[in-house]
Each structure stands twice: as structure tokens, then as C-alpha cells.
Design a protein around this nucleic acid. Structure first.
Length: 277
DNA sequence: AAAACGACCAACCGCCGGCAG
DNA sequence: TCTGCCGGCGGTTGGTCGTTT
């Protein structure tokens, strides 16, 4: 049970847990290199940090993942899974699931969802070890000019919120008009998006975007204009590809949560636009 | 009853980026 | 600019436990 330099490894004892908890409560999180000494635990700094983050930290949620949580994991993994570098993927997902740790989410994905969603045939061996990695299909925007070809956009509010509270304009009317091909300019798009989004959510919310499909990486935070700018900067459309725009808003307890818009962009020449519900 | 197998998950390992000196 | 340290991350391992044979 002892590793290099005589530090303990393996399962934690209740005594070690108790010492670590008292130490963190006294000195706070951080300065992990000092924790083993302060707590009087013969463990390495990383082991202490991991034990605290994944097990001892207050408000950690145990037990089965709810259907909503699973849905969120799948949606966010779809969104973040196409990043060239998966840095912070699990922690970002866990950040949207109060009480869940990145390790929990990762374990749940690996043991429950990976096989279920991708099936055995889509896994490829990446080395001589019995190690498999899902062969994600890389989704790239079609190399077409957005300003010239994109004409219609529809927005579907996150299931729960949109069905209960359909987007309304400030005047209490219907969803703002979709820009026509003739009028589709950058300024129009920005204005249209802003009108729709800002009239669809609480007044005090902030608007952020996730643009994982644009140039293969994800952009968090920002504004509708940033989303539009990115699209125009790429000079590409996202025809037939679902994107997600994230609306961050604060609840009455001061906790931040997200609403998701599924965005479907398509070429009007391909036929009549479908109204997504 | 016990061996084999599979699922689960806590914990480890190696790598990376940020930062201070 | 370089180097070393630290915090943080994803991928993987291995122990435990329940189920099947």
C-alpha cells in the first residue's frame, strides 16, 4: 500500500477522510502540496485533492443519475465531443450538473452511455492494449458562404421551457419573423437573434453561446453577436447541423443555470422550412 | 458451493498549461 | 527565455461486488 517515498496508496480509511476534511475546513481548498503535512496524512497532494473533490466535498450528489441529468450529459457531450482537444470536457459537463463531479460524469459515460450510444462496432483499437476509443464522426460545416446561401433559421427552445413558455415578443406577439433571403445581412441576423433570444428569457439573464461546430472547437460565453460574428468569420454554413445556443440565467437562490436552444440552419433551396416544436 | 464473468467506480498515472523565479 | 513547481485534467487501472454458469 505504499508508493514512492513511502506515501500511502489505495483506498482511503475513515480516519484519513476525517483528517483531510478537518484540514480543508480549517485552511480551505488549494495549496494542495501543503495538505498532507497540515492534515497529517501520508498521502501525495494529488491523492488528497482527488479524495476531497470526488468524495468528501460537501453537497456531492450520490446515487443514480436522473433522466434529466443523463439527457444533459448526452447533449453536452454531443456539443463538446467534437472539440479537437477534449480538455475540460468532463468538468464542463459536471459544472452543469449540481452535485456531480467530473469523475462521476466520466464514469457514468464510460460505463453506461458509451456502449449504449455508440455500439461496439464504432469503437476502434488505438493501441496494442485492450483500449478502445469511440470513433466520433467529425462534423464540419459545409464550405458554403453563409451570407449568400443561408436564408432560414428556426429555433427550438429547450424542451421543458419552450413547451411551457413559448417565446414571445416584448409586445406579446409571436416569434419574431425569420429573415428572408433578400434581407439576410449580418446586421439583420444579429438583430433577429437578439430579438428572439432576449424576448424569450427572463430580463435579467445573460446570453452566451456555444459554437462547437465552428472550426471544430468550442467557444463559451459571449453574446449573440459573437455567435454571428463567428459564423460570418468562417464564411461557412451549418446546414443540416444542430447547434446549441446557451442562455445563462440566475435563479432566485443566486445559482446559475442554462437554457438550451437547439438551432437548425438549412438551405432554403432545399425546400420549405420545417417548424421545429 | 464455487469459479468465472461482468459492471461499477474510486483511485492512480501521465500529461499539460499557468505561473513564479 | 528557460526551468521547475503546482493544480487540474482525461484516460486507464484494479479492487469490489453482484450475477451467471
Amino acid at each position: 500500500m505504499e508508493g514512492k517515498f513511502g506515501v500511502r496508496k489505495g483506498a482511503w480509511t475513515t480516519e484519513e477522510d476525517c483528517l483531510l476534511k478537518k484540514c480543508i475546513e480549517k485552511y480551505g481548498e488549494g495549496k494542495w502540496h501543503q495538505v498532507p503535512l497540515r492534515a497529517g496524512i501520508n498521502r501525495c497532494r494529488k491523492s488528497c485533492r482527488l479524495r476531497w473533490i470526488n468524495y468528501l466535498r460537501p453537497n456531492i450528489k450520490r446515487g443514480e443519475f436522473t433522466a434529466d441529468e443523463v439527457d444533459m450529459i448526452i447533449r453536452l457531450h454531443k456539443l463538446l465531443g467534437n472539440r479537437r482537444v477534449h480538455l475540460k470536457r468532463w468538468s464542463l459537463i459536471a459544472g452543469r450538473l449540481p452535485g456531480r463531479t467530473a469523475n462521476d460524469v466520466k464514469n457514468y459515460w464510460n460505463t453506461h452511455l458509451k456502449k449504449k450510444l455508440f455500439g461496439q462496432s464504432q469503437f476502434v483499437k488505438t493501441s496494442n492494449k485492450a483500449q478502445t476509443t469511440p470513433r466520433f464522426e467529425v462534423i464540419k460545416p459545409k464550405p458554403r458562404n453563409l451570407a449568400k446561401n443561408l436564408a432560414w433559421m428556426q429555433v427550438r427552445r429547450d424542451r421543458k421551457s419552450v413547451l411551457d413558455n413559448p417565446p414571445q415578443t416584448s409586445a406579446g406577439g409571436e416569434i419574431p419573423s425569420i429573415p428572408s433571403p433578400a434581407t439576410l445581412q449580418k446586421s439583420n441576423m444579429t438583430s433577429w437573434w437578439s430579438n428572439l433570444l432576449e424576448n424569450s428569457v427572463k430580463d435579467d439573464c445573460q446570453i452566451g453561446t456555444s459554437c462547437s461546430n465552428i472550426s471544430g472547437h468550442s467557444e463559451k460565453e459571449g453574446h449573440v453577436t459573437k455567435f454571428i460574428d463567428n459564423v460570418f468569420a468562417q464564411g461557412e454554413t451549418m446546414e443540416g447541423y444542430n447547434n446549441t445556443v446557451t442562455l445563462e440565467e440566475e435563479d432566485e437562490h443566486g445559482c446559475w443555470g442554462n437554457l438550451f436552444f437547439d438551432v437548425d440552419l438549412w438551405d432554403p433551396l432545399g425546400g420549405e422550412p420545417n417548424i421545429l416544436t
